[in-house]
Design a protein around this nucleic acid. Structure first.
Lengths: 123, 123
DNA sequence: TGCGAAACTGGCCGGGTGGCCAGGACAGAC
DNA sequence: GTCTGTCCTGGCCACCCGGCCAGTTTCGCA
């Protein structure tokens, strides 16, 4: 047992392609000393599709949207963002609306999560 | 088609920690349908070390709080979380309140960002 | 057996959020 | 000129969120 100071390795799958993710999950599912991370669980290592994150430069966010997004990620409210950027709350809402649209998110929390996943912002 | 519609999966290891890389190489080395990439070879997916980010033994979150947190990270509303977990909205709010407190966050967006930063959840 | 922690539920309410409508200023491309 | 896109602003409104009060049950542990 001297060897077993090594704890189980927990692998997180971060793969968009469902087919590939499935195959990997099956292949990696039954290996002693290794298991897949439960959703939301902290992992030892991550399996990612080739080309970590920065896939395309798609999403095309404007500078102002990036400003707003960054502050959103800090947990700032619309009012605070408005004050920070020197614009009105209405304008902030406008940008937030655009972000929800472009990031295909249902709310600001979802927007930040999506953006982080895609590498648009760094948490 | 005996051999498959499913081509071999090639995994690249990008892990700095030699001990961990070794263990993974051994574990992943003998799995049918999967092999490790030769140096420089194009891979299907990559295994990366999780950011050494501050790992938390600290932040003691209860199982229920983790459930709620995971759903929050998906952008779910309190109502949706309640339905998902089969509990009332009030209870969800109760757990969210605890999370904001424990994670030192000002709102749910901030809570998810903090949790992700600290490795409590995977985005 | 009592005690605390965790989980759960309710009501109430001020303020935040997001969707909708409308508009204007200003740049660059056609 | 016209047109398109970005950025900016306003009002209105239904809904959501987070914080406050209160309570119950269930569980393990001392």
């Amino acid at each position: 047992m001297s060897e077993d100071n090594a704890p189980e390795i927990v692998l997180a799958l971060e793969i968009d392609d469902p087919a590939l993710a499935d195959r990997l999950a099956i292949l990696l599912g039954n290996i002693a000393g290794l298991r897949l991370a439960a959703p939301g669980e902290a992992a030892t290592a991550t399996v990612m599709a080739r080309d970590p994150r920065i896939m395309p430069e798609d999403i095309a966010l404007t500078q102002r949207e990036l400003d707003v997004l960054a502050l959103m990620a800090e947990g700032a409210s619309n009012k605070l963002i408005a004050r920070q950027l020197g614009i009105s709350v209405h304008t902030v809402k406008f940008h937030v609306g655009s972000l929800l649209d472009k990031l295909d998110a249902t709310g600001r929390t979802d927007a930040v999560a999506h953006a982080a996943r895609r590498g648009v912002i760094e948490l």
